Simulated assay, not measured.
Amino acid sequence: MPSDSSYLESVLHHDIPLTREMGLKVVDWQQDQLRLHMPLQANINHKSTMFGGSLYCGAVLAGWGWLHLQLRRNGIEDGHIVIQEGQISYPLPVTRDATVVCGPPEEKVWQRFLATYKRHGRARLTLDTWVLNEGSEERAVAFTGQYVLHR
């Protein structure tokens, strides 16, 4: 059976072909944190930094992927995840390959989300994602997205 990381990468590359062109890779899924990799060269702009649209896409996909894997872990595979709203800021340029990270919400928020979905067949969850220049822990991009899960 493939690892969660290879499973998610396969889903992303099959269902969202753009992810292949972006060179997006799933690095790991550990301790409720998802890490993606995006190469600069496949996403470069005219200023030799990473294109803002690629960064937005990577941030959205990290949240989508985190939710997809967490739902799978909880035995929920009957829903469709969509991004409803997103807010992004770009405090630093991304000048190297990027690491995109999505971590978990508070446990009580997650439990309320699951209960709402089970009861109503629809629920919303806000997830935070950030982008790092490879080799740095300083956040170059910060994203907050509201995801909707519906049957």
Rank of each mutant, 00 (worst) to 15 (best):
V26I: 11
D28R: 04
T19E: 07
W130S: 07
P104C: 04
G86Y: 02
L18V: 09
Q70R: 15
F113R: 15
G103C: 03
S89L: 01
T144R: 09
G75A: 11
D128F: 07
D32I: 04
S89P: 07
R151W: 14
Y90F: 15
W110S: 01
T99S: 00
G79F: 09
Q31V: 07
F143R: 08
S5I: 00
P104D: 11
L67W: 06
W110A: 03
S54T: 09
V27D: 03
P105C: 09
P2V: 15
L125I: 04
H13Y: 05
L36P: 04
Q87N: 14
R124E: 15
S10I: 07
V26M: 03
E106A: 11
S10G: 14
S10F: 12
N74W: 12
Q31D: 12
A142N: 10
I76E: 14
S3N: 12
Q31S: 14
S136C: 02
V109W: 14
Q84G: 11
T99I: 05
L114T: 06
D15T: 13
Y147R: 11
G58T: 00
G53F: 14
G145D: 13
A115T: 10
P39L: 03
E21D: 14
A59M: 03
T116G: 02
L40P: 00
F143W: 07
K118H: 14
L127H: 08
L69Y: 03
Q84M: 10
D97R: 00
D32P: 03
D128G: 00
D28G: 06
R96P: 01
W29L: 03
V27A: 02
F113D: 08
I88A: 13
G58D: 06
L132S: 06
M38R: 02
P2R: 11
Q70W: 11
V60Y: 06
K25T: 05
V27E: 11
G86D: 11
K118G: 09
W29S: 01
P2W: 12
P39M: 01
D97F: 00
L149Q: 03
G121H: 09
H120T: 12
R73C: 01
R73F: 08
K118I: 08
E106N: 03
K25Y: 05
Q33P: 00
M22N: 04
L12C: 09
P91Y: 13
H37M: 13
I83M: 14
E77T: 14
L34P: 02
Q111M: 10
S10L: 09
R151L: 13
T116R: 02
H150F: 12
G79I: 10
V27S: 02
Y117I: 04
L61I: 09
L67E: 04
V11W: 05
D97E: 01
Q111D: 12
L132P: 08
